[in-house]
């Protein structure tokens, strides 16, 4: 049995390492100051896809990512780890999309890849932490969904058994195929890049990237068509522009506030023994502790 697996992955600013220059004076985010990375749980999702391919040779992994031109990096990273091909969903008309508009665009892209058996993504992306795009894409594709997946335990012909990691423990569920799965960060980490795949795909480029290259790749690409990363625009997806971007997004940002801390009159102490002892006496005498 061979499966077709669509992996949804996002390039995100690394919000875990936000420096002081990450915020502009007007309180908006300076994205340029943040390194762009492969969303961590999407890497867990890619690993689950690779494991299916390990067990069922000849299976195919197709990575979809939506974002600006530089998000093509996500597709290259996936190719280096064993994905077969990828598409960059990119268009200015997507700007300002909330999770509903995003899942609409992604669901149209997934439909172009029919017949597929799995749609696998990370549970959530670290820039928004909403965990909404996975289930919303599943709904638009009329697929059953299994969220918080930790491992794919078994695949029979047209069904899959999945372990879920939920608050109080684990749950083992079985679903028919096709299915949408969102993978939790407790799932196995993604394998490293393979040197031979890095060699094979290091010149993989989108059309936009090729236009910016100083070297002429025409000859290389005619021999190695797999190096071409396709871009899908609103027109390619045959999408209704009203359902994208700001007009397709029911949620609006009313207000963004830079975090201003209310300064409390804090008692400043040092690590000296007398300071620490004073604090413990103070807390005991005020019955906060003891």
């Amino acid at each position: 049995m061979k499966y077709r697996i669509v992996v949804l992955a996002k390039q995100v600013p690394d919000t875990r390492n936000v420096g002081k220059d990450a915020m502009k004076a007007d309180g908006t985010v300076n994205r340029a100051a943040l390194p762009a990375i492969f969303n961590p749980e999407d890497l867990n999702a890619l690993e689950q896809a690779l494991r299916i391919k390990d067990r069922f040779p000849g299976s195919e992994i197709i990575v979809l990512t939506m974002g600006p031109f530089r998000a093509a990096e996500i597709i290259r990273e996936s190719l280096y780890r064993g994905a077969d091909r990828g598409y960059l969903i990119t268009d200015r008309k997507f700007a300002g999309s909330d999770t509903l508009a995003t899942s609409y665009a992604i669901s149209l892209a997934v439909k172009k890849l029919e017949p597929y058996h799995f749609v696998i993504s990370g549970r959530q992306a670290i820039d928004g932490d909403t965990a909404q795009v996975g289930p919303q894409t599943a709904e638009k594709l009329h697929l059953p969904q299994v969220t918080y997946a930790e491992d794919i335990l078994d695949i029979e012909k047209d069904s899959v058994t999945i372990k879920r990691r939920i608050e109080m423990g684990v749950e083992i569920v079985k679903s028919t195929l096709p299915v949408a799965i969102t993978v939790h960060g407790s799932a196995p980490s993604c394998r490293a890049r393979l040197a031979k795949l890095v060699m094979k795909y290091k010149h993989a480029r989108t059309i936009t990237e090729l236009q910016e290259e100083t070297k002429d790749y025409t000859d290389l690409y005619s021999h190695r068509p797999y190096l071409q990363i396709d871009e899908w625009t609103v027109a390619d997806l045959n999408a209704d522009a009203e359902m994208l971007g700001l007009s397709g997004s029911p949620t609006k940002v009313k207000k963004i506030e830079n975090v201003v801390l209310a300064h409390k009159e804090s008692t400043r102490l040092t690590a000296d023994d007398k300071d620490v002892e004073w604090l413990m006496q103070e807390l005991i005498s005020r019955h906060v502790i003891g």
């Binding site: 919000t15 985010v29 949620t251």
Partner: peptide, 18 residues
């Protein structure tokens, strides 16, 4: 008004669905 921290906690966003 749906209020939540966003973006690594550097901002607080007020979201509405008009």
């Amino acid at each position: 008004y749906q209020i939540r921290p966003a973006f690594g906690g550097n901002i607080i966003a007020t979201i509405i669905n008009p």
